[in-house]
Amino acid sequence: MVKLFAISVIRRPIDGPPDGRCVLLKGSYDLASFGFFQRASVKEFMSFSSQTIVERTSPATRQSVKEQEFFCHVYVRVDGLSVVLVSDIDYPSRVAHTLMTKVLDDFSSKFEWRSVGPEALDAYRDLDQTLAKYQNPREADALTRIQTELDETKIIMHNTIEAVLERGEKLDDLVAKSDNLSAQSKMFYKTAKKTNSCCNF
């Protein structure tokens, strides 16, 4: 399936201490294809992994991280404003990256993003519209043509989230330590991989 699940705009501190926390400014999700009882956890996990990856991506870099049947596309601008797009593996990654550039351009032209807080952005609906519109990658076709020569940054590909993590870090530990994940989401993380296998409940 060709599908976009989430777009989130994140502020990544570049001047502050290297371990400064990222701030999730605005996120938009389309989780209708997930089970009703899993949606809350899926949402938490998407924003958790988005932030985790942005923290580990240096400025002026593009990355595409594959994790099971998902793709996390990350773009951190030189000034630290970042965007993460979660899609399924069929969504063309070049289209995804062009789309992300557009999202950041729109966002930074509308807000004083260095100082704005997530609360002030509650009424910002453009992200939802973008998410809905570009579910069909053909919509982005025109966009791609304009942008081809615009952006020369090479996209770094990774096959798992683990590959993005720093040496010695483990995803299981990060999940266990995280404050942003509820107890149920952590349980969900442990069992999620098994649901589709046969003779298991």
Binding site: G35, F36, F37, Q184, F188, K190, T191
Partner: peptide
């Protein structure tokens, strides 16, 4: 829709969760 929610038992509550609206 039916699902099994991974969680530990809470006292005095039925493990059957039924969402009436959806």
């Amino acid at each position: 829709e039916f699902d099994i929610i991974p969680c530990e038992s809470k006292l005095n509550q039925s493990p059957v969760i039924h969402d009436l609206t959806s």
